[in-house]
Amino acid sequence: QTIHNGDQTYHYDNPEEAIKVAQKLAKIYNLTVTVKGNTVQVH
């Protein structure tokens, strides 16, 4: 599972963990989380 947060990319073995982290980032920075296959984008 990969999270793209602007210019930063994070890799997680656990998809659920990746989505949790993405949602935390989204709340902190007031962003949107988009899940596309194995990629979670925060923008």
Rank of each mutant, 00 (worst) to 15 (best):
V42I: 12
Q1T: 12
G37S: 02
G37Q: 03
T32F: 07
T34M: 05
Q1M: 13
V21N: 08
L25P: 03
A26E: 15
V42Y: 02
V40W: 01
H4S: 09
H43W: 07
K27G: 13
Q8T: 13
D7F: 15
K36R: 10
V42K: 01
I3M: 10
T9L: 14
N5Q: 12
D13R: 13
K27L: 15
V42W: 02
K24H: 14
A18N: 01
K20S: 07
K24V: 14
T9G: 03
T32Q: 09
T34E: 05
A26T: 11
Q23N: 09
V33E: 01
L31F: 05
L25W: 06
V40M: 03
I19V: 08
T9S: 06
I28L: 14
D7M: 14
T32I: 12
A26Q: 14
Q1K: 08
T32D: 05
T32S: 09
H11S: 08
H11D: 05
Q1S: 13
N38P: 03
V40T: 00
D7L: 14
N5K: 12
H43E: 04
K20E: 10
Y29E: 13
I19Y: 11
E16F: 07
Q8F: 14
K27M: 15
P15D: 06
V42F: 03
L31G: 04
Y10P: 01
T34H: 04
K20W: 11
I28S: 04
K27D: 14
V33C: 05
N14E: 03
V33A: 02
I19N: 09
Q8C: 15
A18I: 02
I19T: 08
H4N: 10
A22Q: 02
I19G: 05
L25M: 04
H43T: 06
K36E: 10
Y29I: 04
Q8K: 14
N38R: 02
T2W: 13
E16S: 06
A26F: 06
T32Y: 07
A18E: 01
L25E: 02
E16T: 07
Y12D: 01
N5E: 10
Q8R: 15
T2L: 13
T39R: 04
V33I: 08
K36Y: 11
H43L: 07
Q8D: 06
A18C: 09
N14S: 15
Q41K: 11
K27H: 14
L25G: 01
G6A: 11
G37T: 01
Y12E: 01
P15N: 10
H4D: 09
A26K: 13
H43D: 02
P15F: 08
V33W: 00
T2H: 12
V40E: 00
E17S: 05
I19C: 13
D7S: 13
K36F: 11
A26V: 12
I3H: 11
Q23Y: 07
A18M: 02
N38H: 05
K24I: 15
Q23H: 10
N38Y: 02
D13C: 06
H43C: 10
Q1G: 12
K27W: 13
Q41R: 12
